[in-house]
Amino acid sequence: MIRYILGRLLSLVISLIVASVVIFVVIEIAPGDPASFMLGINAQPETVAALRTELGLDVSKVERYFAWTTGMLTGDFGTSYTYRSPVSELIMDRVVVSLPLAIYALILSTVIAFPAGIYAASRRGGVGDMSVMGATQLGVAIPNFWFAMIMVLIFAINLRWFSAGGFPGWDKGFFGGIKALTLPAISLALPQAAILARVMRSSLLDMLGEDFIRTARAKGLSQRQALWKHAVRNALIPVLTIIGLQFSFLLAGGIIIEQVFFLPGLGRLIFQAISARDLIVVESVVMLLVFVVIVVNFAVDIAYAAVDPRLRTQA
């Protein structure tokens, strides 16, 4: 088990190094001079020169790469050209919104999908199965921003249970924050839950056809007991893969939902940074997202091993 974790950890570090090189090369080196790109074609040469100095572009590219990566390791992501404030602060402000939102949405999606998938699988071909599958079909088909607007209409405007948007900040209290994130989290979670429920169902049905389920039935377990005690854990492997992918998406992919609910999240930050050609911010946020994706994949790998003993004995 230790060897398995060390192996995954090594692959995590290598992935991060490779990713940082790729991002650096693509953003800083490939399309010519970052300073003139950021300032646009009409910029004065003096302004460009000043920005070059400010960005530290006058040293060699290798030195810049190491300055950038070591800076990030110590929490120094540079200074945003458009916001004129440290990128780390910009990111921190957004992460405290985006990360809880992603986790909230993921929990909701799992809490909805697991029972729905298990229920559908245990009622295969029956009315319950068909209803759940019909609902997931809708969940996948309905655009989440449209669903978000409908929820705003019902719960914020008509019922006035939630505010229609904005984020009060965690310093105004934990529940205020959670309340502000609830509608966005549901909007984000529903399509994900629909996908996850379908994966859970089909994975479970595969498992229910396995020989060891028949063995369990021959021991005297009922169909329901065999499902819970033997099929569910075996069915988790593909489900964990999807959960890992979904979390990465939820963290930055919620940009439309952030727009609908006026949330100051990472998706909005990167969108604005790209529009303003603020390469420093783009570079750092992309690196941060890559970091999260890789760490989540690492966590998924560890979860695989926790579920499946066969992986623990392999390198």
Binding site: E210, D211, F212, T215, R233, N234, D308, R310
Partner: peptide
């Protein structure tokens, strides 16, 4: 089939 008759986990 003893290879698949047991729950692997």
């Amino acid at each position: 089939e003893p290879m698949t008759a047991l729950n692997p986990v």
